[in-house]
Structures are given as C-alpha cells and as structure tokens.
Nucleic acid binder design. Structure first.
Length: 136
DNA sequence: GCCAACGTTGGC
DNA sequence: GCCAACGTTGGC
C-alpha cells in the first residue's frame, strides 16, 4: 500500500511549476536526519504533497516517488540520500498553511507540529482531508 | 556524554 | 526584520 508524504521547497529555489516543467527531478540536498530517514522509507509509487514555504506557504501540487533512496549526488560524505520525484496532479485550489492550521483534522500533521521538517509523513486520513480542501 | 552557544529555517 | 523552534557544534 502506498504511503503519503509532504516535501517542502522554497519556490524561489525550486517550485512546483519547475517540477511540472521538468517532468521529474532528483530530490536532493536534504541535510536533516529526520527528513533523511523519511526519504529512505519512501517506495516507488508513494504519493507526495508539494509544499511551498516562504511568502505564501501551502500545498500547491502533488508528485510521485519514481526512484527510492540513493546516495545524494551532491554529497561527498556519502551520508545523505536523494530520491526521484515525478510531477503529479496539480491541486485545484492551493491549501494554505493558515487553512491547514484551521482544520482540526490536521492538528497532528507533522508540518504543523514541527514546521522546519523538510520531508514529513502524511497519514491516509490527512491525505484525504487535504485533497478535499484542495477540491481535488 | 552533557549542555550552552550558535546557526538556520520558516512563519509572521 | 524579528522571533521561535530546533539542529549542530564544541568545550569540558
């Protein structure tokens, strides 16, 4: 059964539109042990919410895992891993962080509880809730 | 191995 | 630009 995740990116650095344009991308540069652990747990076919941090924080799109964890090509130490993500369905309506915080069903969402985590798990129920808020 | 100081991230 | 949260570093 597929798992669900949320990845965070500064749109100035790499936006969801960039992912749509590229089709797929290597998700590297994660340098946080907790986030890296989640990367290692990802399986091909897992579904991912794409979250923009910065001026307008929120969920803006979806992606799919197309390659499981492999050594981060930009890391000389060999300690860190990357995965490959392919663009998925955009959300119909972006779900802002304010919307997420206002929704009681999302009170336990990892990003609410620990804002700085760049890769975090999402439960099936949370995935459904956010999908409903995004009007699919 | 503990803990204080410091740096970084991200929301506002 | 500020501040809170959290991770990392370095002295002991």
């Amino acid at each position: 059964m597929a798992q669900y995740w949320l990845v965070k990116s500064e749109p100035d650095t790499y936006s969801f539109d960039d992912l749509v344009r590229d089709g797929s991308t290597v998700w590297d540069g994660v340098r946080n042990p907790a986030a890296a652990k989640h990367l290692r747990t990802m399986a091909v076919g897992d579904e991912v919410f794409f979250y923009h941090s910065g001026a307008k924080p929120g969920v803006v799109g979806r992606a799919r895992v197309t390659r499981t964890a492999f050594p981060d090509p930009n890391d000389a130490s060999g300690r860190w891993v990357a995965v490959e993500l392919a663009a998925g369905k955009p959300v119909k309506a972006p779900v802002s962080l304010a919307d997420i915080k206002a929704e009681p069903a999302l009170a336990d969402l990892a990003i609410v509880r620990q804002g700085r985590l760049s890769v975090s798990p999402v439960t099936a129920a949370e995935w459904k809730t956010i999908t409903a808020m995004a009007q699919s």
